[in-house]
């Protein structure tokens, strides 16, 4: 106790002695972070507050904002397009588990250290870095009913494919397939890194215990990949809830009977085509809250079932 006070005193005098030095450091440190702080305040925080306010108004972006209370949200509940686009957005997220399973399997295959691993990593990663607009344009053509690549390949095995993007039943699966194709390389890469970081001794110990391949997978590989799975689910859900580019390019009118219109596409449509800025802001708030809840929930679930190798 006494010793500590002595040290404290020493520290204090030291601090006191150098107080000008510390002030200088504080000033320098503040100067260095001031730009991001301003940027955050001006381009994220204030717009967010403004958005919350706007969502309670009737506003066309040009004229006065008239406060309408909860009216936008009441309208939303009755707006079939809102529910449909929200539903479509969730439907399109079915691609996430498919992508994760495929990428995990591919990563397991690549982790065996076969020749050409680097080559395959690069090949699988090319769609990830490719411009989404260009990719969407290409797939739009590939999904063409008569001359598209997809139906030509299907014809080889004797299947006559539909006109994918014009059909209510196939437009969403078509977009899901494209998203899986584009995102596979990214998840695979992260899984590969995770699998390769598992210490060899774990498997050796399991071998000694006579564990079979499935047991090793279930008790070692998969649990060790949990953080990556968690990370991928979160980033994919956040990204998936904001899907816009491919929708707007591949189905500029929101698809047949609005069957591929997503929530962000609908918000954009309402805000910048119909100039219902207040209503669009209200929907964007719902989207923001949904993303927040999903993120928080994921954190909670992950914390509870945190896996520890004992």
């Amino acid at each position: 106790m006494t010793e500590e006070t002595v040290v404290d005193k020493k520290k204090k005098t030291f601090f006191h002695h150098d107080s000008k030095l510390y002030r200088d450091e504080h000033r320098a440190a503040l100067l260095m972070i001031v730009l991001p702080v301003i940027g955050f305040t001006v381009f994220t925080l204030l717009p967010l507050i403004y958005s919350i306010f706007a969502s309670f108004t009737n506003w066309n972006g040009l004229g006065e904002m008239t406060f309408t209370g909860w009216r936008n949200f009441q309208l939303m509940i009755k707006d079939n397009y809102f529910w449909q686009t929200l539903g479509n957005t969730f439907y399109l997220m079915l691609g996430i588990p498919i992508g994760l399973i495929l990428s995990f399997l591919l990563a397991s295959a690549l982790s065996r250290g076969l020749k050409g691993t680097t080559f395959f990593r690069v090949i699988y990663y090319i769609p990830v870095i490719s411009s989404l607009a260009a990719i969407a344009i290409m797939w739009q053509w590939a999904y063409n009913g008569d001359y598209g690549l997809v139906n030509q390949v299907l014809a080889l095995v004797g299947i006559k494919g539909p006109n994918w993007l014009q059909n209510v039943h196939t437009v969403k699966p078509a977009i899901i397939a494209m998203s899986v194709w584009k995102g596979l390389g990214y998840s695979m890469l992260l899984y590969l890194a995770a699998i390769q970081s598992v210490p060899k001794s774990f498997y050796e110990a399991a071998d000694l215990d006579g564990a079979n391949a499935f047991q090793k997978f279930k008790n070692i590989t998969w649990p060790m990949c949990r953080p990556v799975t968690f990370f991928l689910i979160i980033t994919n859900v956040i990204g998936g809830s904001q899907i816009f580019t491919e929708i707007n390019i591949m189905t500029p009118t929101g698809g047949p009977e609005y069957s591929s219109a997503t929530i962000v596409w609908y918000i954009w449509q309402k805000a910048f085509k119909n100039f219902q800025m207040g209503y669009a802001s209200a929907m964007s708030m719902i989207l923001g809250i949904l993303i927040f809840i999903i993120t928080a929930l994921q954190f909670y679930v992950n914390r509870k079932s945190d896996y520890k190798l004992s």
Binding site: L48, I238, A271, S284
Partner: peptide, 16 residues
């Protein structure tokens, strides 16, 4: 927090 705020939630005020 900025990482948790989706762009669509701020794009309208930013535009204004």
């Amino acid at each position: 927090i900025a990482l948790m705020v989706p762009y669509p939630a701020v794009m309208i005020p930013q535009f204004m």
